[in-house]
Computed example of a mutant assay.
Amino acid sequence: MPFKEKVIHFWKTASLKLKIACFFVLLILLGTTAIAAEKASETPASCAICHNMQSHYDSWHSGSLSAKKHADAGITCHDCHTPKMSQQIEEGIKYITGDYDEPMKKREFSKALCLQCHTLETAKGKTDFPEGNPHDSHEGEQECFKCHSMHQQSKTTCSECHSFTWIKELPDNWKKGK
């Protein structure tokens, strides 16, 4: 008798108590698997399971980009990226089926998220150059992502119009021109 038929026969002839026991064993297995998957997804290395995330993990793990600076400060992926389990499952399905963007779209985090850890006053103080302060823009309040990037070089948006000398002195994780 094929396996499928054995399972069907077992289920038809099993007592109610055995069916209930099987149901609870299945629930325990599913729950344990879900908890293990949730715990495993908290580690940055789990992000690199998908090949389109490898460069993001690499920039967090090594190099000179802002992601590495955050890693050195003990910040992990889920400190800024806080997906729900349903989102992670959806992303997993998209990855398996090939229904995802390559390269991935750059996330545009709000200034409010950045200001949970960083202060604008500190940023303005560190960038108070005689020629002009990029954090005190004549364009008004700007979103941080307009210039700052985690997994790619950051860019000086003000250099699109201005040529401040301090731009040349920025570290290598910044694009210094147009």
Rank of each mutant, 00 (worst) to 15 (best):
V7P: 00
E91A: 14
F23K: 04
W174I: 01
T97N: 15
A21T: 13
N133A: 04
C144S: 07
E160R: 09
S62F: 05
K17Y: 08
P44G: 06
A34V: 13
K175N: 14
K84I: 02
S55I: 07
C144T: 03
T157A: 14
E121T: 10
K12D: 02
K126W: 02
Q116C: 06
A48P: 01
K146Q: 11
K68G: 03
V7W: 05
C114A: 15
P44K: 04
K126Y: 07
S62C: 04
D136P: 00
P83S: 08
G31S: 13
G63P: 03
F109N: 08
F23E: 09
H135T: 01
S159P: 00
Q88A: 11
K39E: 14
I93M: 14
K17I: 09
A71C: 08
H9T: 04
D101K: 12
Y95P: 00
P134M: 11
S163P: 00
S163V: 06
S59P: 01
K155D: 07
K106I: 13
N133L: 04
A48R: 04
A45Y: 05
T32D: 08
H70Q: 14
K105E: 10
D128H: 08
L113F: 08
T156N: 01
Q142F: 07
E139S: 07
Q54K: 15
G177C: 09
S86C: 02
M150E: 01
K146A: 14
F145Y: 13
I49P: 01
D99C: 03
E121D: 15
T82H: 15
K124I: 12
K94C: 12
P2R: 12
I89T: 07
V7Y: 04
S41Y: 05
C77G: 02
K94T: 06
H56V: 08
E102N: 13
S154K: 05
D58V: 10
I96T: 12
L113R: 03
I28F: 13
V7T: 10
Q116D: 12
H135V: 05
T33P: 00
T127W: 05
L113W: 04
G63E: 07
S137M: 05
S137Y: 00
H70W: 12
S46D: 09
L29G: 10
K4G: 02
I93Y: 13
K178D: 06
M53F: 11
L113S: 09
E108C: 06
H61S: 13
D101W: 00
K126L: 15
D72I: 02
E160A: 12
N52G: 02
G63M: 11
D172N: 10
G132I: 03
G63F: 02
K84H: 07
S64D: 13
F129Y: 15
K4D: 06
Q152Y: 09
K111P: 00
K12M: 07
N173M: 12
H135Y: 11
K111M: 14
Q142D: 10
D128G: 03
N173L: 10
K69W: 09
K4Q: 08
Q88W: 03
L170Q: 14
E160T: 10
T97L: 15
G63Y: 03
K155Y: 05
Q152E: 15
